[in-house]
Nucleic acid binder design. Structure first.
Length: 229
DNA sequence: GCCCAGGGCACTG
DNA sequence: CAGTGCCATGGG
């Protein structure tokens, strides 16, 4: 069922080309440069509970001054870093996380072989950030579970308020073990959540309505629009 | 003005 | 182990 949903979403929305680099979604790029990997890692931290449009402003500020670089972030004055990333919110906390992050991964040559557990040891890197780094920056098959994914899984009634790891394992067990698919699927879930499976869901015309009992009830009027959850 | 957004951590019971 | 408060900006 999970894989069928993936194909349905892919057909409906088309390839999403995640992760954006330099503000550009690039569906075809295969080999990432070190600085591109680093940009993804910084973005993964800055986007914690934050809209990507705000993250892009912060990344743009860093890029403008050629500071989107491990050594530069390591050297930069903390107050200045705070100012530059301010648009991404939680900026004091995130400035500390970035500082701690770069000090944890230098030299960059080491990071390719860091295990998931090692990423998780870094303060400020939780499961979603770790998996985003592993999948999108390093091209390793870890499925990224975010708030949208949890919402979807709850609404499909696959799980009820299940923990991160369980949901990740469920995806990894039920779709082909492919980095390309993992990347695309996560991005497609975000597209679905922004367009249909919103906090107040708009189930009409949802591309995966046929898989969603709750959604069908919604359409039938079993739930009043916008009132039930 | 309110609600929300591609979490994670520290602390409490 | 589960629940809760906190961090903060910008767009709709």
């Amino acid at each position: 069922m999970l894989y069928k949903i993936y194909k349905k979403l892919l057909k409906y929305f088309g390839p999403q080309g995640w992760w954006p680099i330099g503000g550009v979604y690039n569906p075809t790029k295969k080999h990432l440069k070190d600085e591109e990997k680093f940009e993804i890692m910084v973005g993964a931290i800055l986007t914690q509970n934050t809209a990507w449009s705000n993250v892009e402003k912060a990344l743009s500020n860093l890029r403008k001054e050629n500071l989107l670089d491990i050594e530069e972030i390591s050297k930069i004055n903390l107050k200045k870093l705070q100012t530059l990333i301010k648009p991404s919110g939680f900026y004091k906390q995130k400035a500390l996380r970035l500082k701690n992050f770069v000090n944890s991964i230098r030299p960059i040559g080491l990071i390719e072989n860091m295990s998931r557990e090692e990423w998780l040891k870094i303060n400020g890197v939780g499961p979603e950030t770790a998996d985003s780094i592993l999948l999108y920056a390093l091209g390793k098959p870890y499925f990224v579970v975010d708030a949208y994914t949890k919402r979807l899984i709850n609404r499909l009634a696959i799980f009820n308020n299940e923990k991160y790891e369980k949901i990740r394992e469920f995806f990894e067990k039920n779709i082909p073990r492919s980095v390309k698919i993992y990347k695309e699927y996560h991005a497609l879930i975000v597209a679905l959540a922004k367009n249909f499976c919103k906090k107040n869901p708009e189930c009409r015309n949802c591309p995966i309505l046929s898989y969603c009992k709750r959604g069908k009830n919604e359409i039938r009027g079993g739930f009043r629009n916008g009132i039930k959850q």
